[in-house]
Design a binder for these strands. Structure first.
Lengths: 333, 333
DNA sequence: TTATATTACGTTAGCGCTAACTTGTCTATA
DNA sequence: TATAGACAAGTTAGCGCTAACGTAATATAA
């Protein structure tokens, strides 16, 4: 690796001062067209690229953002990450990806490290920390987009993006009820997940409003993956054999639940109807195809990145975005 | 956001020079235990964290690496990314994630941007660029791990990690042959993929060595996703209705192929046996469960990151790692 | 005792860049 | 001709940190 070219190298060969080159590089006024062309040609032929580190030190901008997700192999977050990265590329930003793997220590370390790296903004998905920690951390960053987390008093530098989980869960339950199903179970997600709480609320409200008594035994928690969904559904069907519908926290849990039904000889949707959440690509790949609440995850990722940039440019008022999920009827319900 | 604390702030309140604080922060000798403890306590209570940007400018190290993948939503790369990030976390490094989406311009821009960000190393998956461009780019970085790409004269700063694609494809074909199948098709991946070429070689060699004539009509290319696999398989089965086995470039293509078989009324594995490649989580989720060549992707990601760090620390000799895939028999073949 | 090493600091300079100010030149206007 | 204004540069300083060197005080050796 040869020594990196600096502004001074270009300036020397062009016979001008570093500032003149800097002005050209940053497309700023105060340089004649003639000199500008000369320098531009030199930059091209010598292959000069500004050192972002040095630039960052003085401008206090790094053109990079942090993206915190629980697990990038979860298709839900993979799609969001893809959307964020696509938008970041278009906006000339770089993305630090960090997994928390549902581990508080690692989430904390992630925040610390991103802060030390001086990111211009942070997209924080499914923060599991307490309210106080959340606010304290947010205040350390210039701008933050919070996904799947509400804030009673959102700071100026923050945007929240939430899926209308309550409404989504209600739609699913309404669909079950319309089919005449009454023993409707809910396999919920992680205990500290905000989405999980909201979906549970929607489920309970829809059930009770329809005059069906809420039965704690029909609700259980599990991790948001296929295996956990499988285990939880197995236990559920053992405990309450007359269940005729399962709403799942997300598509992965729904798929696990369908597999459990099949393993127990219950056919889907005849004996047990299943509805998932998110509409990940897998939903149309498995058989029976999964009825689910569609959310355009890639779009959410892109919006998150673009909204973050807006906040970075002018930390105006706080703002909240609510995404409406849409029930997509397929084969499982 | 309040002003960031600097070394000088700590030094002032401690009544020492910045260098003394710097020595303590970096755990270097030349400070008495007493002063060291005082400063450590101050750092703790004031919540000081060094500014990585400033540190990077002088040390020319950023403790961050770049990870280039075609598409992070592809489970193959998602698993690898997860492995890389896990190892990076353990090693106190941060990871820039960049997608190329099979777009040469974007791949080029990604490299440029990572270079400007001064990453300490680069993990480059499935590089699609020409040999010359590859070598030129590698020479710009302190250390590079190349995944799925071979190098005739690997530079000192490079490690290549490859899956033994030829052997994998041979195993699959051998399994088909042992079952008495003779009309064995191969749905290959992207044209510029090195893995695709190697798997094709393994397929052809195994076929011809068994005395079965190689038939070009039984080979086709497609993008490495389910939809493309579906379309390609549909066309294939239309062209050559007597196909009795399909080897797919990867699991996603294999799943698309299975769906195409089902759509055409061909049962898997009775009429057509299917074998995939990679063993992504999906392989055990779909029905029939996919027989495939298992590769421990997460482990590859972790190894890549650790190997990269080794290279960064001492750019000794070049090295190459070869991963042996293992045929996992399930239901599809 | 004097010469030499060792320890525990402090001082200076500079990484590559940009913000803010200064200087010089040319032109337009009274 | 004098004078202000516009433009095209150059000069200076500093972002926060660390490498390299300097220095004073103490410890060790001859």
């Amino acid at each position: 690796m040869k020594r990196r070219l600096t502004l001074a190298d270009i300036a020397d060969t062009a016979g001008v001062s570093v500032m003149t080159v800097s002005r050209v590089i940053n497309d700023k006024p105060g340089v004649s067209d003639e000199v500008r062309q000369t320098i531009l040609a030199l930059v091209e032929s010598m292959g000069y690229r500004p050192n972002q580190i040095a630039r960052s030190l003085v401008t206090e901008q790094t053109t990079s953002v942090g993206l915190i997700v629980p697990d990038n192999t979860n298709p839900f977050f993979a799609q969001i990450a893809r959307g964020v990265e696509d938008a970041a590329y278009a906006l000339q930003y770089s993305v630090f990806l960090v997994n928390t793997v549902e581990n508080p220590q690692r989430e904390f370390d992630a925040l610390d490290s991103l802060w030390q790296k001086d990111v211009d903004g942070l997209i924080w998905c499914s923060a599991r920390v307490s309210h106080e920690v959340l606010e304290a951390q947010i205040s350390r960053f210039p701008a933050v987009v919070l996904l799947n987390r509400e804030l009673t008093e959102p700071p100026c530098n923050t945007i929240t993006i939430n899926v209308n989980d309550r409404h989504g869960a209600r739609q699913a339950v309404a669909h079950f009820l319309a089919q005449g199903r009454r023993r409707i179970a809910y396999l919920n997600g992680p205990e500290h997940s905000v989405s999980a709480h909201r979906r549970l609320e929607g489920y309970r409200d829809a059930i009770t409003e329809a005059g069906v008594p809420f039965d704690e035994g029909l609700v259980d928690c599990c991790l948001p993956d296929t295996d956990s969904g499988y285990d939880a559904a197995l236990a559920l069907l053992d405990r309450c054999p007359n269940v005729d519908a399962i709403l799942a926290f997300n598509d992965l849990v729904a798929i696990g639940a369908m597999q459990a039904c099949q393993a127990l000889g219950r056919s889907v949707p005849q004996n047990v109807a299943v509805i998932g959440f998110d509409d990940i690509p897998l939903a149309t790949i498995i058989k029976p195809q999964l009825t689910t609440l569609h959310v355009d995850l890639r779009h959410i990722g892109e919006s998150a990145m673009r909204a973050l940039l807006d906040k970075m440019e002018e930390a105006a008022c706080p703002s909240a975005i609510l995404i409406e999920p849409e029930l997509v009827l397929r084969d499982s319900a």
